[in-house]
Amino acid sequence: MDSARQALRWSIPGLIFVLELVAFAAVWRLTSGDDPTDIIDGIGPTTALATILAGIPLGFLLYQLYYRNYRPYGRSVLLFLRYPLEIRHGLRQARPYWSFVRRDRGADILRRYYQLGGHPNLVRRAWHEDPVPDREDAARIRDVTAARTLFPNTRPSSFKVLTLDEPLHAGCSAEEPAVCQKCRYEYAKRFRWNWAVIMALLDYAGNRPDGAAIKLEYAAGSDIYHALGAARTAIATAAIGSIGYRLTFHILFGPPVHVGHLVQFVVGGSLIALLAYAQYQVIHSAREQASTNLTIRTAAALCWFSHLAAVRNGRDLSRPGGAAKRAGSGNGNGAADRRSQRAGG
Rank of each mutant, 00 (worst) to 15 (best):
R155K: 11
T248Y: 06
Y63M: 08
P167F: 11
A231W: 00
A239V: 03
R232V: 06
H226R: 03
D134Y: 04
L262C: 10
Y280A: 02
H128R: 13
L317W: 13
V22D: 07
F265I: 03
S285N: 06
I40D: 07
D165T: 05
L19T: 11
S157R: 15
I39H: 09
T237V: 13
Y114P: 01
H261T: 05
A231V: 12
Y67C: 02
A323Y: 15
L91T: 14
I214M: 11
H250A: 02
P57W: 08
A231P: 04
E129M: 11
I52F: 14
G117Q: 11
L49P: 00
M199H: 15
A239F: 02
G322V: 12
T233W: 02
F24K: 04
N293W: 02
S242F: 01
G268F: 07
G118S: 04
T46E: 01
Y114S: 00
H128L: 12
R75N: 09
F100M: 14
V311F: 09
R125V: 00
D104M: 14
P177N: 10
S173R: 13
A239R: 04
G33N: 09
T295R: 15
S318M: 09
E86L: 01
N69T: 07
N207Y: 00
I16P: 00
G90N: 09
F253I: 00
L150W: 01
C303A: 15
A178E: 15
A107V: 09
H250T: 03
A54H: 12
A239I: 02
H284N: 07
V266F: 15
G328A: 04
C303K: 15
I272N: 03
G260R: 13
A273N: 02
G314Q: 13
S158W: 11
L216V: 10
P13I: 13
S242Y: 00
I52V: 15
P96H: 05
V259P: 02
R326M: 08
Y185I: 01
G221N: 07
A126S: 13
Y63H: 12
A234W: 10
V18T: 12
A205C: 06
H258V: 05
R142Q: 06
Q64H: 14
R71I: 01
G244S: 11
L62F: 08
W28Y: 01
D210P: 01
L247I: 06
A213Q: 08
S318K: 13
I40Q: 08
G322L: 14
H226Q: 04
S11A: 15
H250P: 00
G244N: 06
D38H: 14
T46Y: 01
S158P: 05
T292N: 07
T154Q: 07
Y66M: 10
T47Y: 00
A286L: 11
Y218A: 05
D38S: 14
A299P: 13
E175V: 07
A324C: 05
G106Y: 09
I296G: 04
L271K: 12
Q6A: 12
Y185L: 01
R140V: 02
G211Y: 11
A25M: 07
A25V: 02
Y73C: 02
Y185E: 10
H89E: 05
F151T: 01
H250M: 02
L62W: 08
F17C: 05
A196L: 15
Y277G: 00
D203G: 12
R88V: 05
D165W: 07
V161C: 05
N153M: 03
I12E: 05
G322R: 12
